[in-house]
Design a protein around this nucleic acid. Structure first.
Lengths: 213, 213
DNA sequence: AAAAAATGTGACCAGTTAGTCATATGACTC
DNA sequence: GAGTCATATGACTAACTGGTCACATTTTTT
């Protein structure tokens, strides 16, 4: 957590610092992001930075937390309605929420994605405290519920599939972030639905007598 | 490519250098791997290193190339028999080859995997010259052939699915590398087959009248 | 106004990095 | 033995890094 001095700062200054930091970590990774550049861009003295934050990790953690909170805004209505939709529609809604978050906060999305991709397990644990990724845990819970309800194939290995879906999610986010020029919602939805189709049905050719939606 | 001086070196020395470098990059990433530590472990002078290699990139590229060649040894017999097996058995064989390579050359596998995961697109292109990952291209080719043969669902988006499979492959390799303590072939095969099952059939519960292998 | 507490500052530290270069070594040729 | 040439060396450079600290300034309290 930032020190109290940071929260005592006038809002303008505080936001300038946050913006500088977010710009920095959106451009560079956590590792390569430079405190020197951040304080330069924020026009504060190096020493001041260390009056506001414990260290680099403290700052980055705070950004991730804020980013997580912001993302939650896009997802809570889905989590609330968890029983109204089946597994596949639930994760579809979750992805759509994620895409909207990414469109409205591209830098935050880029920072979080890059961190998920780059960070080694040790760093992840230092930042979050939980060993397995949060999203993987969410998927795992949803899968179990989906199996109970008879929507998801009970033969699958829940943990493994959660991992696979989490990894696909990451690569699809990366894909979206990379092509932000053509990042219109329609195209994204199309890609999303194609991905969900694969998760639902697999890619093996369907024999006669099998149904489709 | 390393300079001619490197290849003129007595084999013993050459291998000591390669081993030091491989150890270094297996432990640290390309970015964080240190030439200083490499020359120290290899017991050569810093200046000597730069008599053998143009720079850090030159060395790393050479390791990746050698690693790629070595991995090919484990895959060529499959590429040769490409028409004997259907799509799903082909990629299964490819994965098994990959697993065996990883078991016999864990450091090389770790280096390549980490690089695939970490490297930004720019660096990838500097190293390989091709924009899309090699494995993704292989999957794409296999998918197209699989569709032609009526094994793979023609409704899928080939490029997207190739990307998804490539990303799953990476995360499964990572999974295997992480648990090298329990890394016995039997367990790995089980996980592999579970993953392939998902790719084949998806995770939606099967209605009556649908078949399974 | 004086004292005290809080905040701001940037030179500085010890550490790292990739890469260079003048010089030394030693092997081979004439 | 002199001359030549490829190779070996490690001190050195310049550029960074995250983090510290003695001091200056401002704000608050007495």
């Amino acid at each position: 957590m930032p020190k109290s001095t940071f929260f005592n700062l006038p809002e303008e200054k505080r936001e300038k610092i946050m913006e500088s930091a977010i710009d920095e970590f959106a451009q560079y990774s956590y590792q390569k992001g430079s405190i020197n550049r951040i304080v330069e861009r924020a026009e504060i003295a190096k020493g001041s930075f260390y009056q506001y934050f414990e260290d680099k990790k403290d700052l980055f953690k705070y950004i991730l937390e804020k980013s997580g909170e912001e993302k939650m805004v896009y997802l809570t209505h889905i989590i609330g309605d968890l029983d109204k939709l089946d597994f596949f529609h639930t994760i579809r809604e979750l992805y759509i929420g994620g895409i909207r978050f990414g469109q409205e906060h591209p830098k935050l999305a880029a920072i979080a994605d890059r961190f998920m991709k780059d960070a080694d397990q040790q760093l992840m644990e230092e930042m979050f405290g939980d060993s397995k990724g949060k999203s993987q845990m969410v998927f795992q819970g949803l899968l179990l519920k989906g199996i109970e309800r008879g929507e998801v194939d009970p033969k699958i290995d829940v943990e493994l599939v959660a991992m696979l879906i989490a990894s696909m999610s990451l690569s699809i986010s990366e894909h979206f972030l990379k092509e932000k020029n053509t990042g219109n919602l329609m195209d994204m939805m199309e890609v999303l639905d194609k991905m969900l189709y694969v998760i639902e049905h697999g890619i093996k050719v369907k024999k006669e007598g099998e149904k489709n939606d």
